[in-house]
Write a protein that binds this DNA or RNA. Structure first.
Length: 484
RNA sequence: GCCCCCAUCGUCUAGUGGCCUAGGACGCCGCCCUUUCAAGGCGGUAACGCCGGUUCGAAUCCGGUUGGGGGUACCA
């Protein structure tokens, strides 16, 4: 291990979904690791909870990281390690701390502490150090507590926040191992970081209050603490930390909607950091060398999906035609698409795709744009229908169009179709904008969509005529109903 | 309650004492282009929370205040 090279870590606990905040954290860490020839990004799965120990959770994490561009095969990647596999080391370290006198056993129950504190009139204060000097031996019901130094503060030097002081009087003698000997997060985390030679810890702000405790632990272990950096939290519209219960935080959810990883990465990097120079849309390769942890903002950032969408649209438009088609594939597949799989025609899709590319902001929107080509009948959208098929326009226009389209001399290609519809519309005193509406709804089911004449050309004369006739029939049936 | 963090347009940010009558982006609103809708072009809306100081000069430094947020477990 190159002694001076950076060793950062990303230490998620497997919960079955990958949090966007975690994603940003991972990205920041990754950039730092990649900036140095021997820099390492260590993935450590914090699976100490038995309930959080499903193998598929871990696979999900690795898959999500790969989606972001953080690949296991990259030489800067190390791991994954599993916290659970270091359990012996954790217990051993707890014992060492006890033997050194840095920690002591305590048999106070939570209730006892509460009672004593209430008696003092300070019910909100934490543990009171009752067992500090009782010299308790290890035994059942006895947890191990860290002896926080009496006087003075612990100073945390944070790369983002600067110097943060915590008075020791405000830090209780915290538990580092439960009565059953199992270690707590605060200990396990430090032991692992020590073991893995982590020299820079970059994590969410919610860990800032753990930091003085951990720094004390590093010192008690005779080690130099890492450099710390606490990232601002990502918040929702109500300015609360994003929570998986109430907010859309799963990276997988965004992926499923058709957000491109490039766009997500770009957007996430901008949450708390900026490359400066009025630049925002910037590929990862350019950001990576520019990123500096000390430039990260210290105030919380709202996760603005609208802006993410805009970025995504930008990235979609920058795709080549072929790439765009490939990226759309998951939404066209038999199990995802709403049409009968046998109706799908790749050549037709390839022909229409470029027209859709500038019109969608997330990939999943490709489906409603092209479904009319592969569905047996267009979707029924009442609002569209009512808007386009107004009396005096709908029936007349459809009738005229049908008549015009029946002319075998009419070339079935966009330009000719446009001219034809312009002409039929003019015959009814309608501009093209008005004239095309009933035809569009009859053929595609919707009032908005891809350019109409290309759509008609691709659908083919017969199917267009068929749909026009069906629409007319529906219209006439409806008017008979109202008259009768 | 206690500890800690934070504070520039609605949002993400640029800004590190004079270049700021505060720049960009998203959003929103107009206009242009136009077969619908987008895309694109042009233009507009809108911010340094408040009060004191320091200074010849503060968005930038200091103190306070207010307002947000995070943490307060034998969770991670």
């Amino acid at each position: 291990m190159a002694e001076n090279s950076i060793r950062v870590r990303f230490a998620p606990s497997p919960t079955g979904m990958f949090h966007v905040g975690g994603a940003r954290s991972a990205l920041f860490n990754w950039a730092l690791a990649r900036q140095q020839p021997d820099g390492k990004f260590v993935l450590r799965i914090e699976d100490t909870d038995a309930a959080r120990n499903k193998p598929e959770w871990t696979e999900g994490i690795i898959r999500a990281l790969a989606w972001l561009g953080i690949h296991e095969q990259d030489p800067h990647f190390e791991g994954p390690y599993f916290q659970s596999s270091f359990a012996d080391k954790h217990r051993e370290t707890a014992q060492r701390l006890y033997k050194d006198g840095a920690a002591y056993y305590c048999d106070c129950t939570r209730e006892q502490v509460q009672e004593r504190r209430s008696a003092e009139g300070n019910p909100h204060l934490g543990y009171d150090g009752f067992c500090r000097d009782r010299g308790l031996e290890p035994g059942p019901g006895r947890a191990l507590r860290f002896r926080v130094p009496d006087g003075g503060p612990t100073v945390v030097d944070d790369q983002i926040r600067g110097r943060v002081e915590f008075e020791h009087s405000a830090i209780e003698d915290f538990v580092i191992a439960r009565a059953d000997g199992s270690p707590l997060f605060v200990l396990a985390n430090v032991v692992d970081d020590v073991e893995m030679g982590i020299n820079e810890v970059i994590r969410g702000e919610e860990h800032l209050s753990n930091t003085p405790k951990q720094q004390l632990l590093w010192r008690a272990l005779g080690r130099t603490p890492p450099r710390w950096a606490h990232l601002p939290v990502i918040v929702n519209e109500k300015r609360q930390k994003l929570s998986k219960r109430r907010d859309k935080v799963a990276l997988e959810a965004y992926q499923a909607e058709g957000y491109l990883p490039e766009a997500m990465v770009n957007y996430l990097m901008l949450l708390g950091w900026s490359p400066g120079g009025d630049r925002e849309i910037m590929p990862w390769a350019q950001m990576e060398p520019l990123f500096a942890i000390s430039e990260v903002n210290s105030s919380s950032a709202f996760f603005d999906e609208k802006k993410l969408r805009a970025f995504n649209g930008e990235y979609i438009r920058s795709l080549s035609a072929d790439e765009f088609v490939e990226r759309c594939r998951p939404w066209l597949s038999a199990d995802a698409a709403p049409w009968p799989p046998e109706n799908y025609d790749d050549a037709v899709f390839r022909a229409i795709a470029p027209l859709a590319q500038s019109r969608i902001a997330v990939l999943s929107e490709i489906t409603p744009n092209v479904d009319f080509l592969f569905l047996d009948a267009p979707v029924e959208d009442e609002k569209s229908w009512n808007k386009a098929m107004k009396p005096g326009v709908g029936e007349e226009m459809l009738t005229a169009a049908l008549e015009r389209f029946a002319d075998p001399a009419l070339e079935w290609e966009p330009e000719a179709l446009k001219a034809a519809l312009e002409e039929t519309g003019a015959g009814l005193g309608l501009k093209l904008g008005k004239a095309q509406a009933p035809v569009r709804v009859a053929v595609t089911g919707r009032t908005v969509g891809l350019p109409l004449f290309e759509s008609l050309a691709l659908l083919g004369r017969e199917r267009v005529q068929e749909r026009l006739r069906a629409a007319l029939a529906k219209l006439r049936a409806a008017s008979r109903d109202t008259e009768g």
